[in-house]
């Protein structure tokens, strides 16, 4: 692994909160590593667990699933289903051998630009330590 290797993070961001939070991080000129590729989704409940595994298979080193805080869902309860679902999915992917740091689920509101930047910084640090993901990967 070359020393300038940077991890690739795929972030699934709820368009009502986390996506706006990421926007706020940008307009506030906050610095965070350019390691995340955001995918805007209507709700964190839209994130099919297959998306996460596919992202890892097609080259992601880390995946972030982020949405509104519980109670704040634009659709009332989407993120509460996400909470149950990803509690199971994260543990299951670890059960299959994935390192826990590679998948993160976070609640980041539209006002939490700082939080978004911090999560990306933390993930990038963790992934730099772990190195590229080779598990469950498709052959390049």
């Amino acid at each position: 692994m070359s020393s300038d290797w940077q991890p690739r993070i795929v972030g699934f961001a709820c368009r009502w909160c986390t996506y706006a939070g990421a926007d706020l991080a940008g307009t506030s000129r906050l610095e965070y590593p350019a390691t995340v590729r955001l995918v805007r989704v209507p709700c964190s409940g839209r994130v099919n667990p297959s998306f996460v595994l596919r992202a890892f298979q097609r080259g992601a080193d880390g995946v972030l699933v982020a949405g509104c805080h519980p109670g704040d869902c634009h659709y009332t309860s989407g993120n509460l289903f996400t909470r149950r679902r990803f509690s199971l999915v994260k543990r299951f992917l670890e059960y299959l051998g994935l390192e826990p740091e590679r998948l993160r689920v976070e609640w980041i509101s539209a006002a939490e630009g700082q939080r978004f930047a911090q999560v990306i910084r933390e993930m990038t640090d963790d992934l730099c330590r772990l190195g590229p993901n080779r598990k469950m990967r498709e052959e390049p």
């Binding site: 289903f81 149950r84 199971l88 998948l103 689920v105």
Partner: peptide
């Protein structure tokens, strides 16, 4: 998985056993 409770735990914080 077709329902939820308002105070469900966030299971992803504690799943890191065995690493």
């Amino acid at each position: 998985l077709g329902k939820f409770c308002p105070d469900d735990p966030e299971g992803w914080h504690e799943g890191g056993e065995g690493t």
